[in-house]
């Protein structure tokens, strides 16, 4: 299973590189950062059958949309053909999420600090309806500077939303610098604990640790998984490099990246 997931995540990364190159759109580093998290979610955690009663995944850091689209296609939720129209004239998929464009895009998002809170509302709604459905929301570390995140944090625990899991993609590289240097970011884990959340801190590229963290039951408490990741993960020259928040993947970059991702 471990090998299979690593193979799947590699394929998703390749798709992201192809998409970024074809579209000349930014955020390839942000998208590569969370691939392993999405792989574990979509291939090992989310209950997607029956579809109308599925678990929900919300990509709150929606600038990593390429990661979601590629994962949805790999999982067979959207037709791979849809990817051809990503960020194109008369296209099919925008750079930030529009829920009317594709199955599996649960919410429209792109402005930070919205998806997390919509997820809380959904988790509350499922509880009210006594539906056994879980909600997972991926937030960025830069996104965690939004006041709305902390407003939601105050209420998520009060409402006992143990069907809600937030994952922080903690790559410590936001648009223009390191989260830890820009503001008083740390200690992250104890901040969330102080807000009444069950907080765990793990390696965000460790499939087993992710799976265990997702599956841990936290009676009466919402969960945050602080996943330490590497921006640009999987492509050596993109890893932990600030420029790959915005840089465009040229044909040359693509060739090098795909070669690296072909190595097992």
């Amino acid at each position: 299973m471990e090998l299979k997931k690593s193979q799947i995540s590699k394929e998703i990364r390749k798709t992201i590189i192809e998409l970024a190159n074809k579209s000349k759109s930014p955020h390839v580093g942000s998208s590569l950062s969370c691939v392993d998290i999405l792989t574990v979610l979509y291939f090992d955690v989310l209950n997607l059958q029956p579809w109308e009663n599925r678990d929900i995944f919300i990509l709150s850091k929606a600038h990593a949309a390429m990661s979601l689209y590629s994962t949805l296609a790999r999982r067979g939720i959207i037709d791979e053909k849809l990817l051809n129209g990503y960020y194109q004239n008369e296209g099919t998929l925008p750079a930030h999420l529009d829920r009317f464009t594709a199955k599996g895009v649960e919410v429209s998002a792109g402005s930070l600090g919205h998806g997390f809170n919509m997820g809380l509302g959904m988790a509350f709604g499922f509880k009210k309806k006594k539906q056994d459905r879980k909600v997972y929301t991926l937030i960025g570390d830069g996104e965690s500077q939004e006041g709305s995140i902390w407003e939601g944090a105050l209420f998520g625990s009060k409402l006992g939303l143990d069907n809600f899991t937030a994952i922080m993609d903690y790559n410590n590289l936001q648009g223009y610098g390191r989260a830890r240097e820009l503001c008083s970011f740390e200690p992250v884990k104890s901040k969330w604990q102080a807000f009444g959340w069950h907080a765990v801190e793990i390696g965000g590229h460790d499939f087993n640790a992710l799976k265990d963290a997702f599956c841990e039951y936290t009676q009466g408490k919402p969960k945050i998984i602080i996943a330490h990741t590497t921006k640009g993960k999987g492509v050596s020259f993109m890893q932990d490099q600030l420029i790959w928040h915005y840089y465009i993947v040229t044909d040359e970059h693509k060739k090098k990246a795909l070669l690296e991702l072909s190595d097992i």
Binding site: E106, V107, F116, G121, G125, G152
Partner: peptide, 9 residues
């Protein structure tokens, strides 16, 4: 935002 999520359920 919470309201939007609740509405979607």
């Amino acid at each position: 935002s919470f309201t939007a999520g609740l509405s979607m359920t």
